[in-house]
Design a protein around this nucleic acid. Structure first.
Lengths: 210, 210
DNA sequence: TATATAATTAACTATCTAGTTAGTTAATTA
DNA sequence: TAATTAACTAACTAGATAGTTAATTATATA
């Protein structure tokens, strides 16, 4: 009988929307995500979404920028004050891998956005993406100068790492199924540490002198 | 005044729908693709889509299976009667790359499907995917037996190739932009031959003995 | 040429979705 | 405590979308 009185808390509500939106967008993609569903997931009225973020597109951009910021913070932190490109590259791969593992939806959201070729990506988003990529190319560049890395095409190496990790994370279920049903070797028992170590080893090898 | 009389041709109509659906689904994704738009693209009544393929989901599955078949045919053809795993791997990479290049939307559609982690992928689709992957693992397996390849985790190598190629193709526009605007080295002048040759070289290197 | 059938259409329904609005309640401040 | 503001809601609009249906037209065949 007694109606539950909810405390009002703008910050909490806004964060709640952002967190659930991140989950939904990355699980379902932009257009399959319903604002109605998001609202009920947050136990808030749908109008609150438009109250805090203006439009579905606006919410989406907020989500992506937060994601990029979070990834960048992780990577930049781990990468400070080391002056050994090989080690820095290992750190980059491992940090990105463990981040992907603990936030499986975030990197896939990122790559989805990257691949949306026709897209008119807003400036802020664009510059966030460049920051991440620049961090990476700097490691490779220093590695070349020091004589650690050879024959480097940074863009391709970057996508090798991001693409592989992302696919390994997002296909987990499918790989498990294929293994169970047909005994296929899909690396279904591999955990993320093994995977990232393997990728690291192989990338380091492919960058070594001829 | 005179109404244009259209010849009736079931096969042609069905194919037309399939072809345009492939374009639309891969450009816009599943849920952003409108059956109304598809119909008018084909210059057919929307009801024809449901007449030939039953439901949007059914059409989508038909599209994906056709894509997988086409890729598989390409790869299997190129791969016949060669008994040199290194060469076969090179062929696989180059064939997949040139296919991606000439049908930029198809591989991305495939990977999108793979990544839909929660998905209940229909059996036919699943078995088509396995066929492709099996073709690939067999090359690597023979390579190991012959002593050409070492320390192989086929699933990861597979995704390295597919993931990298796919990202390079789908990000073309974005990479061009980033290069023009900020002079970033995004491999924007690289053509697909250079890219696939580089990937081939690097993958071969990473599979070589320690 | 009459008939059956396959291909096609116009017009519809039911449902969903982003976004709005006018009004309500809780919290803050004067 | 009264007035103001910020957080919230219910009920709505307008447009889109997947899918249906009953009727129509072209084509092949008997």
């Amino acid at each position: 009988m007694s109606k539950i009185i909810k405390k009002r808390n703008a910050v909490a509500s806004k964060n709640l929307i952002l967190r659930n939106a991140t989950k939904l967008f990355s699980k379902k993609g932009y257009s399959s995500t319903s604002m109605e569903e998001l609202a009920s997931m947050c136990d808030l009225n749908k109008a609150m979404i438009f109250y805090y973020f203006d439009s579905k597109q606006g919410l989406y951009e907020a989500v992506i920028i937060e994601v990029l910021d979070e990834i960048y913070k992780h990577l930049a932190k781990e990468n400070k004050s080391i002056d050994n490109p090989k080690q820095e590259l290992s750190n980059f791969i491992k940090t990105f891998a463990s981040f992907s593992d603990s936030h499986p939806y975030l990197p896939s959201l990122l790559l989805k956005e990257l691949s949306d070729s026709g897209a008119k990506i807003p400036k802020t988003l664009f510059s966030h993406m460049k920051k991440l990529y620049t961090l990476f190319t700097n490691i490779l560049k220093r590695g070349e100068e020091v004589g650690d890395f050879f024959d480097v095409v940074p863009m391709i190496i970057y996508f090798m790492i991001m693409g592989t990790l992302n696919l390994m994370v997002t296909t987990k279920n499918l790989r498990d199924m294929a293994h169970e049903m047909d005994g296929l070797d899909t690396c279904s028992t591999c955990d993320m540490d093994e995977i990232s170590e393997y990728i690291d080893k192989k990338i380091q090898k492919l960058l070594k002198d001829k």
